[in-house]
Amino acid sequence: MKYWLTCQNALMATLAYRGNLVLNLLTTAVNVMVTIFMWLAVYNFSGRSDIAGIQPNQMVIYLIVVNVLALIFSAEPIFKFSGLVRSGNLSVVLMRPINYFIQSFWDYLGRGLPFLVIYGLATGFISPVFRRGLLYALASLLLMGLTYGMFFLMITAISLCSFWLVQVWPLRPVLSALFLLLGGQAFPLQVLPPTFAWLIYNPFSLAGNQLTLLLLGKLSLNQILLAGGWALGWAVVALGILKIVWPRGIRSYEGVGS
């Protein structure tokens, strides 16, 4: 219940700034439009009806979905945690009989909830995911859950560098670029030469590219299981980093400010 309340409070805090929410959606919409026009121009001038097996209308849907996913898989926990360490407000969190990571996860879920609902509705009503049999639907849900958990753990593991770095804002453009390039936000990774095929199993691609292809019904059951396996692997790596780094970080934490 306490964690559910954390999620609820995070959602309310997101909705409290309606202007920011609308602006965020508008900015994303503009970015998507630019990318779509760019790709349509590529199709037009190349004279090809498909690129790497993707037709123009599929590309448009891909770009919309992957950008919604970019809103769900935000790197905000890094900057939130950095703020807590830098201001010393982490002290307040440490004084509560709660697991910080579980609370942070529910907070992350609450903040991303409006976009998760959009993705969920699109999956339920537009995507063929739930029309390919029970096993396929369950595997898809498992992949979504695993990827969401993995990405949160990965971002949280990165956030621990805040214990040693006073400013982590330089990471913001780096992470945006990673999601743009490795996550398939600017283009589907399938357009890359076969020698780069392994890139589709990086954490950003699992969160962006693979979940988009899942929604579009472009993943086979085997591909879903393989992606799920990679997501689980990355989650274990992130968990390992957390287990090792957190105790060291908490010892170096100075609780600055009175």
């Binding site: 409070n9 309310m12 805090a13 409290a16 700034y17 201001s87 010393g88 407000n89 002290s91 307040v92 004084m95 400010g257 009175s258």
Partner: peptide
């Protein structure tokens, strides 16, 4: 069993 109030650190959610 303990309660802590650090005057310059807030427990309160700013927007709520």
């Amino acid at each position: 069993r303990i309660g802590v109030m650090l005057s310059q650190k807030s427990q309160l959610a700013w927007d709520l």
